[in-house]
Design a protein around this nucleic acid. Structure first.
Length: 425
RNA sequence: GGCCCCAUCGUCUAGUGGCCUAGGACGGAGGCCUCUCACGCCUCAAACAUGGGUUCGAAUCCCGUUGGGGUCACCA
């Protein structure tokens, strides 16, 4: 075994200088003294990162943990270790025995999730001495986390399954420091499509990416919560419902694979259930990003027919922009098929109809188109499709007559004229 | 490898001993609706890893096996 690096550590067993073996090989024995921490309520673990904002007044976790180490005399003695050229000059404490904080012969239990009642017991002989400060005085994660949480008065620590092994170490630190041990709960992890765990170090995407991709915040939360928790057959939850209904009793045991398709579907459901003015607030910035400035009132009128055929806010922005722009870019294939000498007479008649009847609203316009189609012995589709291409440039759009009305008389006629110019007649 | 966690349709899951010839949702296939595309509606395919126990009865409880995952840092 390589000689342990100098640093400050606490012994998981009896008091032993960690520079001489980190407590390995000392007595072991049977058991008891398991502390149990039943899971009580729902809350997500939150932690301020040193670099993050919003921690004003707390100081950095690093600084605080270091102070604590001093205050609790965890760094009080010097060992035989001496700095070498390769170690930073500031590093001074060296290895220090800290006194036994838990007999090696016992075990520590923490509650996992699982019906809120299964405990995981760790034999202390499985634990290594815990280094809490690096040789240069920088506190390490498990110690920093405990100090941080004590200072913030955290009572429930809920995190991924991958933290299970950290839990007994942290419980021991709370006990050594004389602070009440919070409730610990562990949630199943989230796996990527490759079934590998999703983490900030593998495969994860910034949540902001989902915003940019047009997902409603509530939809993302809804999806993520359902991944690992369930409430009967219900799939769609408002944030309020989530708060009211979430319970540890129904948190699952198995890691879940992140399924983008289902997120997409859920986002669509959320879009359909979100009031138009609110959707407009989300879509406006996306349109602005595309160089389209809109007024919210008009946007709110344009959105309803789009809601039904959008899975994301980005879809909505893309579909909405045509209502704010002059003219249209024709999809060549669509134009080639629908704007032909054959359809020209139809388009001319349709133009006339639009010019005369558009002020009567979509229903009257549709009625007029149906009558015209019947007179020509055609189905409505034969007449509507060329007009759709003329007015939107594509074969896919919201209902034609609503589209025409939303466009307004001038713009609709201008687009039909532009299309007519392409029919080669 | 040690320790720990986990195991129902492709995926998310319901299921807490009889209500299960296993239910819902996403995705897939087919159909209806229809001015296009969607939405919506209907139908279909699709799962209890495996071997033992316990029990009148097991997807559910116990043990083993197999498989997957986590963790074994002066990273977080």
């Amino acid at each position: 075994m390589p000689p342990p690096l100098p640093g400050t550590c606490i012994s998981a067993g009896r008091a032993l200088p960690c520079s001489t073996g980190c407590g390995r090989g000392s007595r072991r024995g049977r058991s008891s003294c398991a502390s149990r921490t039943p899971i009580a309520s729902a809350a997500r673990r939150s932690r301020c990162k040193p670099s993050s904002t919003g921690c004003a007044g707390w100081g950095s976790p690093g600084t605080r943990a270091r102070k604590w180490a001093d205050r609790t005399r965890l760094t009080s003695r010097r060992s035989a270790w001496r700095p070498t050229r390769s170690t930073p000059r500031r590093s001074s404490p060296g290895a220090v025995p800290t006194g036994a904080i838990a007999p090696r012969s016992s075990s520590t239990s923490c509650a996992s999730r699982r019906r809120a009642r299964s405990d995981i017991t760790t034999q202390h002989k499985e634990l290594q001495d815990e280094v809490i400060l690096r040789a240069d005085g920088v506190p390490l994660y498990n110690f920093g986390a405990v100090v941080d949480d004590v200072e913030m008065g955290i009572t429930l620590v809920a995190r991924g399954d991958d933290h299970i092994v950290n839990t007994p170490r942290q419980i021991l630190m709370y006990q050594a420091l004389g602070y009440p041990v919070p409730t610990f709960a562990h949630l199943p992890m989230i796996l990527g499509a490759d079934k590998q765990r999703l983490s900030k170090r593998h495969g994860a995407v910034s949540v902001l990416q989902y915003r940019d991709d047009g997902y409603l915040p509530g939809a993302l939360v809804n999806y993520l919560v359902r991944l690992g928790w369930s409430h009967g057959d219900q799939e769609i939850f408002s944030l309020q419902e989530l708060i009211e209904k979430f319970d540890w009793e129904h948190v699952g045991d198995t890691a879940g694979v992140f399924n983008p398709e289902k997120l997409l579907w859920l986002n669509q459901q959320w879009i359909k259930a979100t009031p138009v003015p609110e959707l407009a607030r989300h879509v406006a910035p996306l349109l602005a990003q595309r160089g389209v400035q809109v007024d919210s009132e008009r946007l709110a009128r344009v959105l309803p027919p789009i809601v039904e055929r959008a899975k994301t806010l980005v879809d909505m922005a893309e579909q909405a922009r045509t209502f704010f722009e002059k003219g249209v870019r024709f999809d060549e294939a669509a134009a080639k098929k629908n704007l032909t000498p054959d359809t020209r007479p139809l388009l001319v008649e349709a133009r006339d109809l639009v010019a005369r009847r558009i002020g009567e609203g979509p229903h009257a316009l549709e009625q007029a188109f149906r009558e015209l189609a019947t007179q020509r012995g055609l189905g409505l589709g034969k007449l509507a499709q060329p007009v759709r291409v003329a007015v939107t440039g594509t074969t896919v759009s919201p209902p034609l007559f609503e589209t025409l009305v939303l466009l307004g008389r001038d713009e609709a006629l201008a687009r039909i004229d532009a299309a007519l110019a392409r029919t080669g007649g």
